[in-house]
């Protein structure tokens, strides 16, 4: 009895160690999926090219959601885009992180009273880091990425776990905004 408890605790300890090693690799090689929904996407080219050079942090652009680790939501999200964003987010392989750019993802920004644009991104998918500003300048974008790495180091970037545990709540919010998450029309059948 005693010994089984000991081995279980031992196993947890080993798991934790492995996870920490994995975290080192994950935070030094963040591959981004740029979901360029709005104007904040224009801040990414200077962040990638020779002025700020995000490749020295191990970051790089990736082509598909399956390969990527970080989802960059750059700007306002209309309802139509939000639906695709949810598809995209659910396709990414775990662990996955979300960075929201600009005031539009925080509180709606200048589109706060539009009938087609959502106000708070974190009601629909979990967000790990917000970069404030309209638009954020490139230094704060880079700062946001380093913040994300710090959060991963201190194990606070657990948005994907929150999405699992609070899935019902997120799904309720998504349905309240979208009606139905899966769309049925001639373009999708």
């Amino acid at each position: 009895m005693n010994s089984t408890r000991f081995t279980e605790r031992n196993k947890e300890e080993i798991d934790r160690k492995w996870w920490e090693i994995g975290d080192y690799f994950r935070r030094n090689s963040l591959w981004m999926l740029m979901y360029c929904t709005g104007c904040c996407a224009i801040e990414l080219p200077p962040a990638m090219t020779s002025v700020y050079d995000m490749e020295r942090l191990g970051m790089g652009p990736m082509a598909t959601p399956r390969q990527a680790d970080v989802l960059l939501v750059t700007g306002y999200l209309s309802l139509k885009t939000l639906r695709r964003l949810i598809y995209t987010y659910e396709q990414m392989s775990e662990p996955k992180y979300v960075v929201g750019f600009g005031s539009c993802t925080i509180n709606g920004g200048i589109y706060h009273d539009s009938h087609a644009v959502i106000n708070r991104l974190d009601q629909y998918i979990p967000v790990d880091v917000y970069v404030a500003g309209c638009m954020p300048n490139t230094e704060s974008v880079m700062n946001g990425f380093v913040d994300l790495m710090d959060l991963m180091k201190s194990k606070k970037a657990d948005g994907w776990k929150r999405y699992h545990t609070n899935y019902e709540w997120y799904r309720e919010n998504q349905i309240a905004a979208l009606g139905e998450v899966k769309v049925h029309d001639e373009f999708h059948e």
Binding site: G108, H112, D113, H115, N119, N173, A177
Partner: peptide, 17 residues
């Protein structure tokens, strides 16, 4: 006669400043 702000308030969660 459609009020986008009322619709937005009804449908989307707002952030309290």
């Amino acid at each position: 006669d459609f009020d986008p702000r009322a619709y937005s308030d009804k449908k989307f969660t707002k952030r309290d400043p």
